[in-house]
Nucleic acid binder design. Structure first.
Lengths: 348, 348
DNA sequence: CTGAAAGCGCTAACAT
DNA sequence: ATGTTAGCGCTTTCAG
């Protein structure tokens, strides 16, 4: 019952032109009279013709295929908001622009992760690659992809990734700074910070912003305790005792993402602590979890879905030559501190 | 710098056989001497040859492309655990089996959603289609896809979808029943139930199980209040007042998923209620949110990631003819009540 | 501005 | 058990 779909030749025949002309019309090529163009479009319409992307790609045309790669290990992090929101945004933009995305999950500890990613783009003829952290800072990977003629957009590159390829992201350093400033304004002077997974440079910039804010008030290493988690809720609960029992007795805790903040929050509840009276806690991302925990989490909002969308748009702009500028462009989106109910003045 | 990749002819030349023979080896075809097979594989190895899927597909071979369609509206439900876990499972199985998935988000209110899905599979030459709820019960869609020669696997079909195509899922009716039995055992006699979005038949089976358990104890419509949400946390908070102020004064609330349960929990906190002393609350799915809220949620576990994985495996079994049976098979996975801290005996 | 010819890399028939 | 012959549907030269 596999109904035979009309081919470009059917369209050519119906509109009384050569196959090439149809191809030109379809690809927005120049040198076609408006009258002919209209006639062809008409035929396309009546036949409900759709190009065969495989044939197009094989013939040397565009594959209109993009790859989206993310690193989170599904075992530990079964439902990272960050990645799924990114993907959703990318999917939506693709729909509008006529592209398809191949999603690939490559846990970072995969021994040959670089090879796996490069294999995907060459084998499947992907024209563009969207790299989420920490791959967005893997310069070797970026350059290898670029060398193969695959355009690259990085999401939240932390530093090394910038300049090598187009990118999107928020100012993570400023986000960490702003959040910490708010806590300082409330009167906090003893802090905790839970950082994310090593090598996630954009997340580390949040820590840098935190330190800058502290430094401005004359506070330093002796006034804060910095621990490192892995972005998961569980790592928040795991790290909580070390933080809560620390001799410094921090009154405020800044976390590199919402899940870890939620983990600490939960551990604090389990101990019978009152949040925010006993400890102010803040997150980062403004993921759904921030509104779900009790009390709702004060955090730094970043427009993750839009990030995914912009990533695709930047890629397509490069691919279609809309973006003439030779230099890598970085699209910095706005972040915002969202004050909810896990922050208050320190109890003295 | 786009390095020219070796083609099947290069492999044929190097191994001193005809192109067809290489093709046979690559596709596990019969009638090839072991010696020749080995020689070809050797050449494939040394050349690092990879088939060009576009060419293969165009020539009438397999596209090895699957489509995964989900309905949730990203505006309302920015991060449905259910769908992303399904996708993750599918992705992992595809990696192992050499398939690719095209993910498509088609909100159900899309006017021409059926056309959109069918267009995807014909245009992209997808060989298989994974339908998540509520599309898993869209018989017209399933039959249309099947008629195009595209194999279909439904995830959690509620009834109509069963039998039309292979499927995977848990026994939702039994899940609802088991959860409710547990509450009855604790002594509850006045219940609330928050159902999911209309048309999600598998979720409605949870309600049926709930009713069956009540019926067995001689309880009926007069002993419970049933409301309908849309699976989101927000719908849980929205519905909470109606439930909490209901004259029946339910002592236990069964929800069709975890997010809605979390929403009610949050609303209950905001009112100063103690959970579970003032109200027992249960969810369904055992999503991460169940472990994140306070107190952690009693719920029905279902292995969503495995569901996604099994869906791909069933599809590939059909495609490769491993599955000879002509009848549609339904792979029912285990569910389990997970008792955490939102349930206790009613306060009398 | 339009068309004719050639071929992308592969598989399906049909030989042998 | 292996090879020969034809395309799949499209885009690229290169001619007019």
């Amino acid at each position: 019952m596999t109904t035979k779909r009309p081919t470009i030749d059917d369209v050519a025949r119906l509109s009384g032109v050569a196959r090439v002309t149809v191809s030109r019309v379809l690809n927005g090529g120049p040198n076609v009279r408006d009258e002919v163009r209209a006639r062809v479009m008409q035929a396309v319409e009546t036949l409900a013709y759709k190009v065969n992307p495989q044939a197009r790609s094989l013939a040397g045309g565009a594959s209109r295929l993009l790859a989206f790669v993310f690193a989170s290990d599904p075992e530990n992090e079964p439902n990272s908001y960050y990645e799924s929101a990114l993907e959703l945004g990318a999917l939506r933009a693709c729909l509008a622009l006529g592209y398809q995305v191949l999603v690939q999950n490559v846990p970072q500890q995969t021994p040959d992760h670089q090879k796996r990613i490069l294999d995907l783009i060459t084998t499947q003829r992907c024209e563009g690659l969207i790299l989420s952290p920490p791959y967005s800072d893997d310069v070797a990977l970026i350059e290898a992809a670029l060398a193969q003629g695959c355009k690259v957009v990085t999401v939240s590159p932390g530093g090394p990734g910038r300049g090598k390829a187009d990118g999107v992201g928020v100012d993570d350093e400023a986000g960490g700074y702003d959040m910490t400033r708010e806590l300082l304004r409330l009167g906090h002077r003893r802090f905790g910070f839970i950082a994310g997974l090593e090598g996630h440079l954009s997340a580390d910039r949040r820590l840098q912003g935190f330190r800058r804010a502290l430094g401005e008030q004359g506070l330093g290493e002796g006034d804060c305790v910095v621990l490192r988690g892995d972005f998961t809720f569980r790592s928040g609960t795991r790290l909580a005792p070390e933080l809560l029992d620390h001799p410094l007795k921090p009154t405020a805790l800044v976390c590199a993402n919402d899940d870890m903040a939620a983990g600490v929050l939960s551990a604090a509840h389990a101990r019978g602590l009152s949040i925010p009276q006993d400890l102010s806690i803040t997150g980062f991302d403004d993921a759904p979890v921030a509104g779900i925990v009790w009390p709702p989490l004060t955090t730094v909002h970043q427009p993750v879905k839009v990030l995914g969308q912009r990533a695709v748009e930047l890629l397509v702009a490069r691919l279609t030559g809309v973006n003439v500028s030779d230099a890598a462009i970085f699209d910095e989106l706005e972040h915002a501190v969202v004050t909810r109910q896990t922050t208050t003045a320190p109890h003295l």
